[in-house]
Simulated scan of single mutants.
Amino acid sequence: MNKTVASAQEATADIGDGASVAVGGFGLSGVPETLIRALHLRGSSGLRIVSNNCGVDGRGLGLLLAGRRVARVTASYVGENKEFARQYLDGELEVELTPQGTLAERLRAGGTGIPAFFTPAGVGTQVAEGGLPWRHAADGTVAVASPAKEVREFDGRPHVLESGITTDFALVRAARGDRHGNLVFRRAAGNFNALAAMAGRITVAEVEELVEPGRLRPEDIHVPGVFVQRVVALTTEQAADKHIERRTVRG
């Protein structure tokens, strides 16, 4: 039951070329920075990433993008990452843009064994009808477009069929965790972390504070240890390494 691993490098050592990886975080909140850096140093390429967004330039998943390690991204928006946008528009990267709530439910569904579900989000748009550019050609035309999806009516309202998502691995960050893999997130850092943890066949969690089993109250646990296979305790410096995406000051 002791799922602790000595280092982030050891915890990510078997994430090879072409692996699919769900990654927690929203913007720069709750991003498993230490695990991402370890994966970057490992040198794996052709990765298929599932995450709300793909970090920012030089931070988070932006490191993997800059190193040309990512082949495909399933996300809800491009965000503040200029390199992400450049690679997508230049045809170097395949991107499946998905409504944010739909992406969250696809991860949750995959993690709970539900293969697909119907949702009204996206009906009447290219999300349902197909034609969203997944990959561009060098001349700017669409090389690969999204397919049309099944639409069915429930109670007089059309709904589009979306598939659940499971991935080979998941990388998440928690405020607290125990050696059994139970995780607690702090405030907004919960975001996509719990969902990503559920979707990964092998889930690796970096935790800011590692505690002994029994220290976490059952009612406080956001992700039970059954979903987590490896736990990495962060150093004080790693735990404190949190950046602000956009600082606002009062004049």
Score class of each variant (00 low, 15 high):
4 T>M: 02
4 T>V: 12
10 E>D: 15
11 A>H: 04
12 T>P: 08
14 D>I: 05
15 I>R: 03
22 A>P: 08
23 V>T: 04
24 G>W: 06
25 G>Q: 01
30 G>D: 02
36 I>W: 10
38 A>R: 12
44 S>K: 13
48 R>I: 13
48 R>D: 14
51 S>T: 13
58 G>Q: 12
59 R>I: 09
62 G>D: 12
67 G>Q: 12
73 V>H: 00
74 T>N: 03
82 K>Q: 14
82 K>Y: 11
85 A>M: 15
93 L>A: 09
93 L>F: 09
97 L>E: 03
100 Q>W: 02
103 L>V: 03
109 A>F: 04
112 T>M: 06
112 T>S: 04
116 A>L: 03
117 F>L: 02
118 F>Y: 06
122 G>H: 00
122 G>I: 05
129 E>K: 12
129 E>V: 04
130 G>H: 08
133 P>D: 06
133 P>T: 06
134 W>N: 03
138 A>P: 05
142 V>W: 01
147 P>E: 15
148 A>C: 02
154 F>I: 15
161 L>H: 12
162 E>I: 10
172 V>H: 06
180 H>N: 11
188 A>T: 12
190 G>N: 11
192 F>G: 01
197 A>R: 07
198 M>W: 13
200 G>C: 10
201 R>K: 14
206 E>R: 04
207 V>A: 10
217 R>G: 03
218 P>Y: 12
227 F>I: 00
231 V>E: 00
234 L>K: 10
239 A>I: 12
243 H>V: 00
247 R>L: 15
